[in-house]
Design a binder for these strands. Structure first.
Lengths: 118, 118
DNA sequence: CTCCATGGTTTCTAAATGAAACTATATTGC
DNA sequence: GCAATATAGTTTCATTTAGAAACCATGGAG
């Protein structure tokens, strides 16, 4: 099996395209803590729209990274949780958000320097 | 300093948006090996267009992750290299592509299962 | 004098995104 | 009984973005 993300037709490209996504990273980060319901996710991930959250959850579910459980309460409760496969990914995803938080000042500084010299 | 990627207005969101991008991941992965010229990158990253490569290199340079050096050869040579700041990120980014290559089969299997039951 | 290689920018079309409104069900409050 | 609220979405439409392809400028090789 020769998988290589640098080859366009390689299926790993599809996976990378799914994971290398701002919203997917944030959703997986939240679900890593505990199972969460739809609107709770929506509130916790500031700025995400219902449509995009719905789409991304569907894609993550299809990829086997997230599970969806419906409870016959009133109103109906839908709970999303991370799967064992998804769990193997969360440390990597968490490293991304951690890097962003740790290095934001260096990045902002670089941007200002770049903008001044241009 | 209270940085939190889950807050929309937080500058870390901008960084996450830049990094959580398929092309950025692939570009940083290539530059991590060695400095590379524009068209060489274009050839090695199958499927990327000149426009998108040009845009993403400009953004990565602005963020201080990549440096751009022009050599007065004929035709002009432009070499892109990773910066020390960018270097602190490459292991995380490499983990993403590695995950994709390692787990693609589980993902494809999950997709088939999902599609059959739908 | 035309072709190729360099590193881009420009143009145009097609796909994706985001904001907002709409759907449907059922409980609570007045 | 009637409006408001909560659940989890879908739909619609305007704006953004991405991708494909063409174009630009330079200069050496054939």
């Amino acid at each position: 099996m020769e998988y290589d993300v640098y080859v366009q037709a390689c299926p790993t490209r599809l996976v990378l395209d799914r994971l290398a996504d701002k919203w997917a990273v944030l959703v997986l980060g939240k679900l890593d803590e505990k199972p969460v319901r739809f609107n709770q996710l929506r509130r916790e991930i500031d700025g995400i729209s219902q449509k995009v959250l719905s789409q991304i959850l569907k894609k993550l579910e299809r990829d086997g990274l997230v599970s969806r459980s419906v409870f016959a309460t009133v109103p109906v409760t839908v709970e999303y949780a991370i799967t064992p496969l998804g769990r193997t990914l969360t440390s990597t995803v968490a490293a991304l958000t951690r890097w962003a938080e740790d290095n934001i000042e260096a990045v902002l500084e670089a941007q200002q320097k770049y903008d001044r010299s241009a």
